[in-house]
């Protein structure tokens, strides 16, 4: 017998590693106020205290607790990444589904629009959007979602194109179902697996974009984030290596974990591909 999805997913050691780290980050983000009750911007000690002293990860150039910053940064970074991904998936799926299902001129118009967004270098585009909209958490979500929906639209369109020619869609037409109902109840559920995989990998990209924007000082103001910490610490790299290294490693591990889980999802959802 074919192993079930959860068996295939959870028996993959790389998935377990990725999931463990992500669970930890998620817990920390949710419990940030309990784990580090102090304001992460508060000055708690002398500047440049090395790690493993009074403060586990030391302090930065203004004497702020690096660990507290990481904990609160997890919340900001994850929230912005997840929200922007959800927005991108919702919008991209809508565009892709409508383009794929209705075809003809609707498809042409929507796909040219998608290509228009795809051809602009995405990071520069996000930068321009933030510069126009002014930096805030909401605008970060908008900017990141705006630059990341095109691949989702393409994936969904391709899937819808292949699903809509299947006979069960014809059967639904013969049964008298309306187009909108066919799209929602018959076609879209069958495009879910690639959508989940692409979406999960998109979270990793969103974290990177958010960190890069924060690094440049275009992140959410008054909210501690990993990218901001690296940006603030970059001029002191020789004196205080931990200011840049620690948040950098955290970003690396989180993005890597999301990729591992995404790959694991892909393998578990498409077992035949994984074996080839």
């Amino acid at each position: 017998m074919m192993k079930s999805f959860s068996q295939r997913f959870l028996h993959n050691p790389l998935v377990i590693v990725g999931l463990s780290w992500l669970t930890l980050v998620l817990l920390v983000a949710v419990l940030a106020d309990v784990l580090a009750p102090a304001n992460p911007f508060a000055i708690v000690g002398k500047p440049f205290l090395p790690p493993a002293g009074d403060f586990l990860l030391g302090t930065d150039s203004l004497g702020r607790d690096v660990l507290g910053g990481l904990i609160h940064g997890a919340r900001t970074t994850l929230l912005i990444a997840v929200l922007s991904t959800l927005a991108a998936v919702a919008f991209g799926a809508l565009v892709g589904a409508v383009a794929g299902y209705y075809g003809r001129w609707i498809d042409d118009v929507l796909m040219r629009l998608t290509e228009f967004f795809q051809t602009i270098p995405s990071f520069l585009f996000a930068l321009v959007l933030i510069a126009i909209l002014s930096p805030s958490a909401m605008n970060l979500v908008i900017a990141i979602a705006t630059v990341s929906w095109p691949p989702i639209a393409r994936v969904v369109r391709g899937e819808v194109l292949s699903v809509k020619s299947r006979e069960f869609v014809r059967a639904a037409i013969v049964a008298g179902q309306r187009d909108s109902a066919i799209l929602i109840s018959q076609v879209l559920p069958n495009t879910l697996s690639p959508l989940i995989v692409t979406g999960s990998l998109l979270v990793a990209t969103a974290i990177l974009v958010e960190s890069a924007l924060s690094f440049l000082g275009l992140g959410a103001p008054n909210q501690m984030s990993w990218g901001f910490m690296i940006g603030a610490g970059r001029s002191f790299m020789r004196e205080a290596w931990w200011l840049v290294t620690v948040p950098g490693i955290v970003i690396l591990l989180t993005v890597l974990s999301i990729n591992l889980v995404g790959e694991g999802l892909n393998d578990a959802l498409n077992p035949r591909l994984a074996d080839a």
Partner: peptide, 16 residues
């Protein structure tokens, strides 16, 4: 009027 389709594997929605 109703129809019986050719391919029994493609004519039933796998998620219903």
């Amino acid at each position: 009027l109703q129809m019986v389709f050719q391919d029994p594997f493609a004519s039933l929605n796998p998620r219903h």
